[in-house]
Nucleic acid binder design. Structure first.
Lengths: 374, 374
DNA sequence: CTGTTAGCGCGTTCAT
DNA sequence: ATGAACGCGCTAACAG
């Protein structure tokens, strides 16, 4: 222990006098702003301003400071910054899960959007537990984040209040809704659900099942869209056609769901799946059972993950823009932070139905059952 | 200036007498330790110790402080903690990419391992760029992280030095190697590659190709394992059998790789794929071409993602333990931080070959070509 | 445009 | 077992 200290101090006295430039001048082995200031022959404040608000400083001093920073390898201490300014450089990102690919895409967008800024994303997952979301937000609020990105629009009142009290830009993502906390970017899940169901009808399918895992609020709204369309088309709305499970979505779950639905309704001719995991699982189940897709069974997925575009057959899906959403959310936050006027508080990221082989069946006369038959 | 102070004191004197419990006593609308101390009628230090080192404090005061914390809703300010102690509660996690499912699994393990501790993970991705890794580490070092988790064993010397200078537990993950920076947990990629290749040989395949995307160092070692086995089996080692691309791995890439390899070596009877994305893509390509798997073509993947266990046919893969690895890495760090003796600095997470339908072909006499034929 | 001063909320000596 | 005093590195008022 003693030797330790001694070694440390010895190193000090060795490097400190000898070191001209390129020197960690502090005992903590950390270059601080005061070191930079000393090196540049200016006050600490000036050094700070030269870095933070360069416009308020002479080009000459700016250069001096820049040189000192370079020479000493100065990097600001975020903890000190946060403490002094009561604002951290952290952008909090609250998502329900990391298992789901779509959130990984979102995170990539956020990360990329934050690259080359001095902000840092910080991710947490709620595991779809609302009380956990509140706890996480409480923790975030102690960090005084620069901005917050939260998934979905189903925050509890407590969560909404916490977010508002953070006094920073907040973006809800993955969905749009009528009453954003602050800003929002995503797509209309219900409308997207409608598009999927409508596509199946257009392709001549009539006994259209719904396969859903986990059934979080977003999935619920897609299901609602499916119901909208089936009602509007005056196709028998049969609750038995809706097969869901609280289990997390996965390929295996998808196969299981289809099996269960087939057991109850052997006459279905198509399924709209909650998401692509379920859709691919359903496709595999069809292959196992020798059910021909798209002829005996139409399949539509959701999200348009990479995999559905190269399976055999390829799977029709509703493309959503997760990466772009993450990017946009960050841009909204950055814009607000730089006092720029934000064009829109609510941004519809849209969606796109990508028709593929899994529904590529021409409607034939025989496919059209009489209306309202069960 | 003066008014400032007065305001503060006024608010104090207003809320302090009036406020019995449940009061944000500070001008900043933030409850601090001094508020807790006041409420509990102890000094700030005592309050601090009651929370941090409860053993050094009377059960009575501990209770008083706990009550005050509860009443005021006190949450420590991490920035202040970090500044004062020169240590943050952040565990830095450096991975190459978030696109790859296996890193999402790792992150889940890390997150879960850090739940119910007061440490927070912070993720960054290097995008497989080593200079970027160094930059990221430099940034992390300013945060004085509690621990670091980095992916792989191929850090540059500069990166290794940076990690050592952080003076905190460091765990390399996803691989094991001879010269860990500090601690390490993962599996022997080369050995895993051998297992995959050996399995194909055991199943009677002889013209065994290698399909690899991205080809990061880990993939390179798997390829080396494949070569080891082919040499040892005295099967013709033919570099034309190795088909790689610098492009990121994906299902599409997998199909493309197989196409390219088939164009050059139409006589291959099996492929060992870099990872499961490639393997599934290759399977789809076989389906498109009417190549029967496993009879005309054996396929082995890597990682054993969920999807390969329910595709049709199911795909043989080498299971790796990403989630467990993340969890273990965290546990190693936590153990070190709590001064517990760490059992092993190097932990082999192992792997497991899961044989499935895609290689389920009995070796037949005809499958055995003469040795060393090209 | 630059320097001076006073904290941010906590941990860490050192006394008691 | 408890408390007083100081400072972590930086920003934010204010004064020149």
């Amino acid at each position: 222990m003693k030797t330790y200290i001694i070694v440390k101090y010895e190193m000090w006295s060795v490097t400190s006098p000898a070191g001209n430039m390129k020197d960690k001048t502090s005992k903590n082995n950390t270059v601080k702003l005061s070191d930079v200031a000393a090196q540049a022959n200016v006050s600490v404040v000036t050094a700070s301003r030269a870095l933070r608000l360069p416009d308020l400083v002479t080009p000459a001093t700016r250069a001096k400071v820049a040189a000192a920073v370079e020479a000493l390898g100065y990097v600001p201490n975020p903890a000190a910054q946060a403490l002094a300014s009561a604002r951290s450089k952290i952008v909090g990102v609250v998502i329900p899960s990391l298992t789901n690919q779509i959130f990984a895409d979102l995170l990539r967008g956020v990360m990329d959007g934050l690259d080359d800024t001095d902000y840092t994303p910080q991710f947490v997952n709620t595991r779809y537990i609302t009380t956990r979301e509140e706890d996480l937000l409480r923790i975030f609020s102690t960090q005084r984040p620069a901005g917050m990105i939260v998934s979905g629009i189903d925050q509890t009142d407590a969560a909404r209040k916490l977010l508002q009290k953070m006094n920073c830009p907040v973006v809800q993502v993955m969905e749009i809704g009528p009453d954003p906390i602050d800003m929002i970017v995503g797509c209309d899940q219900r409308e997207a659900g409608r598009a999927a169901a409508r596509h199946l009808i257009d392709k001549g399918y009539r006994r259209i099942g719904f396969l859903g895992a986990r059934m979080d609020p977003r999935a619920q709204r897609r299901l609602a869209g499916y119901r909208d369309v089936l009602q509007a088309a005056q196709i028998a709305e049969d609750e038995r056609l809706v097969q869901t499970t609280p289990k997390p979505s996965s390929y295996t779950t998808g196969g299981q769901l289809l099996s269960d639905l087939l057991a109850r309704c052997p006459d279905i001719d198509a399924v709209f799946c909650n998401n692509d995991d379920v859709a691919l699982g359903a496709l595999f189940e069809c292959q196992r059972r020798g059910i021909s897709v798209p002829h005996q069974m139409g399949i539509v997925g959701f999200n348009d993950l990479d995999v559905v575009s190269c399976s055999v057959p390829t799977i029709t899906s509703v493309r959503t823009f997760r990466y772009q959403t993450g990017l946009t959310a960050v841009q909204m936050i950055l814009a607000r932070l730089s006092k720029q006027p934000v064009a829109e508080r609510s941004l519809d990221a849209g969606f796109e139905l990508i028709a593929r082989q899994s529904t590529d069946r021409l409607p034939r006369i025989g496919d059209w059952p009489s209306i309202n038959q069960t």
